[in-house]
Amino acid sequence: MHMSDGLISTPVAAVAAAGAAVLIAVAAAKVKKSTRSDLVPLTGVLGAFVFAAQMVNFAIPGTGSSGHIIGGVLLAAFLGPWAAFLALTAVLVIQCLVFADGGLLALGCNILNMAATSCLVAYPLVFRPVAGRSPSAPRIMAASVAACVVALELGALLVSAETELSGVTALSTARFLMLMTVIHLAIGMCEGLATGVVLGFVHRTRPALLYTATEEGEEPARKVHWRAVAVIALAAIVVGGGLSLAASSSPDGLEWSIEKITGSTEVVPQSAVAAAAGSLQEATAAMPDYNSTLAGIIGAAMVMLTLWGVCAMISTRSRKVKQM
């Protein structure tokens, strides 16, 4: 689900980055105020744990393929929502900078799509109410699956909205949304099962390590149950309604492309010399139906290849000089 910079526009990236920055500031303040003195190192090490756990794939039942966890709900179940959000954000930043997983400008989008949805929405509003105050193994599994499905579906919804608002896909909003939500429903189920298995293991061996809301003086889980349902329903109506309006008011892929092409057909030679050169070129060219778009692309690519060659030669020469 990591969004690349190639899929978003600068305004969408800026708005998402601003939203993510506010959430990071709030999370940092919450963690700083925490009564647990070991929360900072624990959060850091468990962030690294989720990263490491992502390196080991598990077999997806009935498919013959394998997958790995994302870990948002898992972290929140150990650390609480705000510390988990901070840890998962740190993981996303490192994945972006070190492993090129997701773009730097798209980082705000990725933080909202993956960390905020799982730690700040799905965990407090779904996992905790379903798991209850003294969870059993079946309840933990049910809560994990429900929370992960909600987190992944919300993430898919946000990815669709961000991509559509950026205007990079010719796929209509409704089709893109349907594709994303169906795929992420399956991914969410797998994520939920994997999260439930790990939490079940820890519940059996070291139950005290699971996060409880009361240790931070937060509201008991059961009280937020109906409010949670209302918030999710309201969000679904608002987002769904907004997207359907956008879908109906925007032109479809073909109309969009025709609009684009009619606005960019001004390829006219600027001078008599250019026109003469053009006709000569047309008469002698091996592929006379090349037009200006292709010529521009090929020209730019040739310049970049030349630049690369020159730069490579210069850096090789400077390395040799240093070695001498």
């Binding site: 990071i24 700083k32 190192p41 850091g44 090490v45 962030g47 744990f49 840890a87 740190a90 490192i94």
Partner: peptide, 18 residues
């Protein structure tokens, strides 16, 4: 925020160890 930068450094440091 310093807490967030600390998280980045800790996750990066312990990633290799874990």
């Amino acid at each position: 925020p310093a807490v967030f930068v600390a998280q980045l450094m800790l996750v990066y440091r312990y990633l290799g160890v874990l």
